[in-house]
Amino acid sequence: MTRQAAITMDYGHDLLFGTFITPTARPVSQAVELTRFAEDVGLDLATFQDHPYNPGLLDTWTLLSYAAAKTTRIRLAGNVLNLPLRNPALLARQAATLDLLSGGRIEMGLGTGSFWDAIVAMGGPRRTPGESIEALEEAILLMKELWDTETRGGVRSDGPFYPVSGAKRGPAPAHPIQFWIGAYKPRILKMVGRSADGVVPSLSYLKSGPGELAEINKWIDEGAEAAGRDPHAVRRLLNIAGQFSRTSGGFLVGPARQWSEQLADLAHRYGVSAFLLGSDDPETIEFFAKEVAPMTRELVAARR
């Protein structure tokens, strides 16, 4: 296949800038403080990884709830929550609850899970890649059903992963919660196109670099179209990492102007509309929020 990366893509979403904060248990309040800091410096989103088998980390749902209560404006999401160790029916009620409490600031970042030995160690299931994608789609549909209080009658499903027998609908969240899925490969990307609202890969996992985003988009778009959906319905988020320095030292290593140009380029070429910075360093977070974000917005606006 020839690389078509030079073709620009833009899915028309507003640009979001956020953080990807380590939910470390030591020091215990670091993640909450960084979330408040991210809000103070004007970022749109605070997200946390979820590895419930890792005892060095706080439980991500607990942290999301706690951090949401300690903030007033910033939106929050898992990046991404580990489905196999969370019951999706319960998670739907949890997310709706937190969305209600927080005034509609919660999005549902969700993933298939990948460290199966660790998941099994905690009493969770072991799933093949195929099963894990099916389970994820089943969970998404189940959660949407549970949030849908307009429809009458309980929610029923035979599974196979999450059978429910007449679960009551509700509570309805305060706003339509978006499903953002951690995904890289064709099959799950097509599922994202079909059933989810966003994709959130990490740049560092793209073996052949940012160009791989074109592939990711292609599969999502294909999945969306096959399901009769508009590909614009799926937001393209991206976890990034980098270093602020006065002189340029490569991709996202350099001054604000360079970062902004590189991010604007990602927005322009691959339709990325949310950049989530993996950093626990307040200075870097502030730099990203106050220098990179506004400059990137300007560059993108100029090109749109």
Partner: peptide
């Protein structure tokens, strides 16, 4: 947790703790 007219207790406790 099976009652749909209730807030989910874990999330609520986390929020109230904060």
């Amino acid at each position: 947790p099976y009652m749909a007219d209730r807030l989910e207790t874990w999330t609520l406790l986390s929020w109230v703790a904060a």
